[in-house]
Simulated assay, not measured.
Amino acid sequence: MPTAVLLISCPDRPGLVHAVAEFVLAANGNVLHAEQHVDREAGVFFQRVEFELDEATLGRDQVATAFAPVANRFGMHADVHFSDERPRIAVLASREAHCLGDLLGRWRAGELPAEIVAVISNHADHAALATFSGVPFHHLPVTPDTKAAQEAALVELLRGYRVELVVLARYMQVLTSTVLDAFPAQIINIHHSFLPAFVGARPYHQAQQRGVKLIGATAHYATADLDEGPIIAQDVEPVSHRDSVADLIGKGRDLETVVLARAVRAHVEHRTLVFGNKTIVFG
């Protein structure tokens, strides 16, 4: 039987954990995982509760309605998900294939509880890779003069596939409000973590010339503030003066694939809550 997941946020006050646990108990459910966090500065409570429905007195289509009185009593924003849901993902990429190939490989291996329904690129390079993985490929070229029309076509394509998550797997185009507003907190981006120190082109060359000792990667939800959206996952790796630019680029690509996959998995497993410009990520 699939499990149910409650994702909750509300003003902090006594009795919240008890009320949620009492609801699950009254429904004859069995809590498997429960994790909560309180933002002391903002006074906001966050919780993720996953529970079994095997012996529950509620059907899955009744959980949200049954929980509504609890949510109303405490002023909760509550989302209900189920472990057998497989969110529909579109992956966008440009010329680099490492993140795209890694996600497709993990998906084919059953590591991502989701469905990759489309690969979309502003270049034609990845058609064979998408076809090999059994995923439809769409080439949407773009120039500065055609960007508005290309993004309108992109949104139409994403909606046609009923996409629930857009993954920018090294998609080297800045998205405008046309796309961002259509998928709020549903677009995940990946980039190196040299920002804001080394902006622009050739960041690994800049880093190597400065003798950096750490390289990293950041995955975050895309917003109108370029590369400054709520962070989901990050990681770093030590490097030294012995590493060439090629070494740094290779290590950076490895980090990008792992960090992006970690962020996508957290999202599709319903482990993330966006609060302001940061993200609560439950374990």
Results as ranks from 00 to 15, higher is better:
Phe82Glu: 07
Leu100Asp: 01
His139Glu: 07
His98Thr: 03
Arg106Tyr: 01
Val142Ala: 12
Leu158Glu: 04
Ala127Asp: 10
Pro136Glu: 14
Ser83Thr: 15
Ala124Pro: 07
Glu85Cys: 09
Val142Gln: 06
Ser121Cys: 00
Ser94His: 04
Leu157Arg: 13
Leu129Gly: 04
Ile120Cys: 01
Val142Gly: 01
Leu175Met: 10
Leu175Gly: 01
Arg106Lys: 14
Gln173Arg: 14
Val167Pro: 05
Arg162Ala: 14
Gly160Arg: 07
Pro136Met: 09
Ser177Lys: 15
Asp145Tyr: 03
Arg95Thr: 12
Thr131Met: 11
Val166His: 12
Arg159His: 14
Val119Ala: 00
Cys99Glu: 09
Phe183Pro: 10
Leu140Ile: 07
Asp84Glu: 14
Leu100Ser: 01
Val167Asp: 07
Arg88Leu: 11
His138Arg: 13
Asp84Gly: 07
Arg95Tyr: 11
Leu104Asn: 00
Cys99Tyr: 05
Val142Ile: 08
Pro141Val: 04
Leu129Tyr: 00
Asp102Phe: 08
Ser177Gln: 14
His126Ala: 07
Glu164Gln: 15
His138Trp: 06
Thr178Gly: 15
Ala97Cys: 03
Lys147Gly: 06
His98Ala: 00
Val174Cys: 09
Leu92Tyr: 00
Pro184Arg: 07
Leu180Val: 15
Arg170Ala: 12
Ala169Thr: 11
Ile89Asp: 02
Asp145Gln: 15
Glu156Met: 06
Val166Glu: 11
Ala109Lys: 08
Val117Phe: 05
Val155Met: 08
Gly160Trp: 08
Ala153Pro: 02
Leu158His: 09
Gly134Phe: 05
Ala78Val: 15
Gly160Met: 08
Leu180Gly: 13
Tyr171Glu: 03
Asp145Leu: 13
Tyr161Trp: 14
Ala114Asn: 03
Asp145His: 12
Glu156Ile: 08
Leu154Tyr: 03
Leu100Lys: 02
Leu103Gly: 00
His139Cys: 09
Ala127Phe: 00
Thr131Ile: 13
Thr131Pro: 02
Arg106His: 10
His81Asp: 04
Asp102Leu: 04
Ala118Cys: 03
Leu92Ala: 01
Ala124Ile: 01
Glu85Arg: 13
Phe183Asn: 10
Val179Tyr: 08
Asp84Ala: 09
Val91Lys: 07
Gly101Ala: 15
Gly110His: 04
Arg170Glu: 13
Val91Arg: 06
Ser133Gly: 12
Asp125Gln: 13
Pro144Lys: 04
Val80Trp: 12
Thr146Asp: 05
Leu92Gly: 00
Val80Ser: 12
Val119Glu: 02
Gly134Val: 03
Glu96Ala: 15
Glu156Ser: 15
Pro136His: 11
Leu140Pro: 02
Val155Asn: 10
Ala182Gln: 12
Ala109Tyr: 02
Leu140Trp: 03
Ala169Ile: 10
Ala128Glu: 14
Glu96Gln: 14
Gly105Tyr: 00
Tyr171Gly: 06
His123Tyr: 10
Glu164Tyr: 06
Val142Asp: 01
His81Met: 11
Glu111Ile: 03
Ile116Ser: 02
Val91Thr: 04
Leu103Pro: 04
Phe137Lys: 04
Ser133Met: 09
Pro184Trp: 14
Pro113Ala: 09
Ile120Phe: 05
Glu164His: 08
Asp102His: 15
Val119Cys: 04
Asn122Pro: 06
Val142Leu: 01
Leu154Val: 02
Ala149Arg: 10
Tyr171Phe: 13
His98Cys: 06
Met172Arg: 10
His77Ile: 13
Val155Lys: 05
Asp125Asn: 12
Ala169Phe: 08
Leu158Met: 09
Ala153Arg: 15
Gly134Ala: 04
Val167Glu: 09
